[in-house]
Design a protein around this nucleic acid. Structure first.
Lengths: 147, 147
DNA sequence: GGTTGATCTAGAGCCGGGTCTAGTTCCTAG
DNA sequence: CTAGGAACTAGACCCGGCTCTAGATCAACC
């Protein structure tokens, strides 16, 4: 019960989260915090562990490509409190789809990239064993229709 | 032998690749083409199927997050011709790593996102069956330490 | 010969997501 | 008291990657 919510300065939060102090102020201006950041004496920002927890969620969502407006929307919903879980669910589901789609696209791209790596590996292997001037063999790697 | 390389206008290439004509000119200025784009009468750009093939490669590399400078570098190497396969290999391997790393990050993020979706699904299910005003149950979803 | 529509160039503008600056105001230590 | 360092605000700036504009040119059709 006597647990004092640890207070953190902006610098400490920056250190802990990896965000810059600039970014923290920016996020605040953008309305990404669920709880308005408290101010200590001298008007300095005071953060709690909860803020840091929320930020780590934000960081993960950002890292997965959630745009700031969506993140702000999510923060708004959470701030509003219970009763809008359907909306939060929708938002999260949409983001889930975006992310899986993105992973899908990246995996597809990876096919081509792996293919190219393979082709160049072969060429380099060949080239080091055999004569240096071979007859323009690189074309095959760059004309390749993606399989 | 009598295969006439089909010539395409910028508009046709735009249609085929999904890039805008603006983007095509932009890519050209950025030096992303392997073969300097030919010009027809009146100074108009004339593209070949090869150009389109190269562009599709570019599009895939871009889609997987390769920045323009890297893409330009790659184009430079290919333009130079045979003999620099090691460099191309290095470039592709690096990109391969970036992409797999990115997929890894996204998959990790997906853990949290799935978790949140699960929590909100539960809350919504509960909320629809039981009484509307339950005692602030949303906290559990937003305080959750990422497992 | 006039209109339409595609293209050309050079350069400006935009958007997302921060980052940095300038000029102050604190707090703390020596 | 004074110096340093950290924080404050408002607003300018940057970067990547296009996108759009303006004004000119060209080809084709009626």
């Amino acid at each position: 019960m006597a647990e004092i919510t640890t207070s953190l300065s902006i610098g400490q939060v920056a250190e802990r989260t990896g965000l810059s102090v600039h970014a923290l102020r920016f996020y605040e201006r953008e309305g990404l915090f669920v709880n308005a950041v408290r101010r200590g004496p001298g008007g300095r920002r005071v953060y709690s562990e909860d803020d840091v927890d929320w930020l780590t969620v934000c960081i993960i969502l950002r890292a997965s490509g959630m745009p700031l407006p969506a993140l702000r929307r999510y923060a708004d919903l959470v701030r509003e409190g219970a009763g809008n879980e359907e909306e939060r669910l929708t938002l999260m589901r949409e983001h889930h789809e975006h992310v899986t789609a993105q992973i899908g696209r990246l995996s597809e791209s990876l096919d081509l990239i792996r293919f190219k790596v393979g082709v160049y590996e072969d060429l380099v292997d060949q080239g080091s064993g055999a004569a240096r001037q071979c007859h323009a063999p690189s074309a095959s790697a760059d004309e390749a229709r993606t399989p």
